[in-house]
């Protein structure tokens, strides 16, 4: 499956990131890099700072110390929509979709940043706005086809089972044509079959579009199977970084996360 895949240079470099909320140190002095075309898994026990790290990467949290360099551009302060414009998309641990809107409309919202027609054109259906809408709709239809969710195209998202909602959320993130895709526990609360589907989609996204993916996941089987590299966090510190097999054997990682061998 992984054959023929070329992992490039660093796409995003986080250098000595520290983040604190009042007295709570969420992240301390974390450096990690995400390389082009790879699938990076960030693992760690609850409260280790995994989601905080994702939030720092997409500009939602501002670290007190350290720098983030994305596509060679270093930033200190940034807002999430800047990250989105630069090509970082994400999904959330708790599904964050518009429940009353259909699958199709939810994914269309992922195209908003790509819509160029001004407020003056939008209310007039005919003409440039229409052509633009059709273009975007076509793109969204390709995503629907890719994620095999044709049957729920017109179904309000709130009525869908959790596993499918997760898939729609992935679809919306894909609609932004991201260079870097951040997935926060994409498989939490899914059954075995749904997990397998999701794994396949993640691998396919990585393979077909060359999208770089950083994901947080608790299911070790999944992590070991699909990721090229694993970063382990514990109490806001980085305690491991390497290919899955290496990390699996690391005594410190075993102690912190996988449980001690008895």
């Amino acid at each position: 499956m992984q054959n023929g895949k070329v992992i490039g240079g660093p796409l995003l470099v986080a250098d000595s990131i520290s983040l604190a909320f009042g007295g709570v140190k969420a992240l301390s002095n974390i450096s990690l890099e995400i390389r082009e075309h790879e699938i990076l898994a960030i693992i760690g026990p609850n409260g280790a700072g995994k989601t905080s790290m994702l939030n720092v990467i997409n500009g939602f949290y501002h670290p007190q110390e350290g720098t983030i360099t994305f596509k060679g551009e270093t930033r200190r302060r940034m807002r999430p929509h800047h990250a989105a414009e630069q090509g970082i998309a994400r999904t959330f641990q708790n599904v964050a979709l518009f429940k009353g809107m259909s699958t199709l409309d939810n994914i269309m919202t992922g195209r908003l940043l790509k819509m160029k027609r001004s407020l003056w054109w939008q209310p007039i259906w005919w003409g440039p706005a229409e052509r633009e809408e059709i273009e975007h709709r076509e793109f969204v239809e390709r995503i629907i086809d890719f994620l095999e969710i044709q049957a729920i195209r017109k179904t309000p998202v709130g009525r869908l089972p959790y596993g499918l909602q997760k898939r729609v959320e992935l679809g919306r993130a894909l609609a932004m044509e991201p260079d870097l895709l951040l997935l926060d526990e994409p498989m939490a609360g899914m059954n075995v079959e749904e997990k397998e589907d999701m794994c396949r989609f993640i691998l396919d996204v990585n393979d077909e579009f060359g999208t770089t993916i950083a994901l947080i996941e608790h299911d070790m089987g999944v992590v070991m199977d699909i990721s090229d590299r694993v970063v382990v966090l514990d109490y806001g510190r980085k305690i491991g970084d390497g290919p899955p097999d290496e990390v699996r054997r690391d005594p410190e990682v075993i102690k912190a996360y996988l449980g001690e061998a008895h």
Binding site: M1, N3, G4, K5, R200, D204, D207, E208
Partner: peptide
Amino acid sequence: PRGMRHYA
């Protein structure tokens, strides 16, 4: 062809 890009 989906998913078979690397099938040699």
